[in-house]
Design a protein around this nucleic acid. Sequence first.
DNA 1: GCAAGACATGGCGAAATGGCCAATCCGCCA
DNA 2: TGGCGGATTGGCCATTTCGCCATGTCTTGC
Lengths: 106, 106
Amino acid sequence: MKEKTRKQYEARAKIAKAMAHPSRLLMLDLLQKQEMCVSELTEEVEADQSTVSKHLAILKDVGLVDVRKEGALSYYRVACGCLSGFFSCIESVLQSDVKDRQATLK
Amino acid sequence: MKEKTRKQYEARAKIAKAMAHPSRLLMLDLLQKQEMCVSELTEEVEADQSTVSKHLAILKDVGLVDVRKEGALSYYRVACGCLSGFFSCIESVLQSDVKDRQATLK
DNA sequence: GCAAGACATGGCGAAATGGCCAATCCGCCA
DNA sequence: TGGCGGATTGGCCATTTCGCCATGTCTTGC
C-alpha cells in the first residue's frame, strides 16, 4: 500500500477514535444542542473534572469541537455540521443489528 | 445519568470503536465496493492473516459486515448502506481541520 | 497581593487493544 | 482417510487508553 494512502486512513481513524468513547459521544450530543462549559459537562458526564477536560482536549485536537473563552470559563461547542450524519449511521447499524438478533432467535 | 442512557452510549461507542482503526477503515472501504474473502483482504491490508481475521470478527460482531461461506472461503461484505454518510462526515472534519490549520498559520 | 473557582496538565496504575506466532478447525480432494 | 489450503482461535507481549489524584495556570473579587 502507498505511504500516502496509509496516512490517510490513519488520519480518518484518529477522528473515528476520538468519537469512539461513551462519554465523548454524550458530550458531542450535548454540545450539538448548545455550548457548555467544562463544569456543566462534568456534571452531566459524572466523571472527574480532569477526565472531562482530557476528553474535550481529544475532541478539540481532531477538530470536532471548538472552544470560546469567556473570562475564567471555557465554552465548548461542536465544530462541524456533519455529526447528525455520523450519529444516524451508528443508529442504523444499531437498529439492523437488533433486527438480526431477533431474526436469529426465531 | 440513567443506566439505560449509559448503556445506549456504550452501544454506540462500540460501533464507533469498531470503525476506529486504519486497517478496518480500509477494509470497509474495499468491502463497500465488492465482497472479498479473507486472503484477498489480507493482501490489501498487508498484515498477518490472523490479524485480518480478527479485524473482520470485530466488524462482524457489531453488525458492520456480513459473511457468506462458499466452501473453504469466507466472503465478507458491508452490511449497511449508511457507511457513506459516516465517511463523508469524517472527510468533512478532516477538511475543515486542514483549513483551520492553514488559517492559523496566516 | 492573595484566596477561590475554573480548567488544563503530569503522572501513575489498571485495563483494553493490536499484532504476530502457533495451534486448531473445516471443507475439499486425491 | 490423510493431507492441504483457507480461516478462526488461543496465547503472549508491547503499546495505548482510561480514570483518578495531585499539581499548575489563569481569572476574578476582596
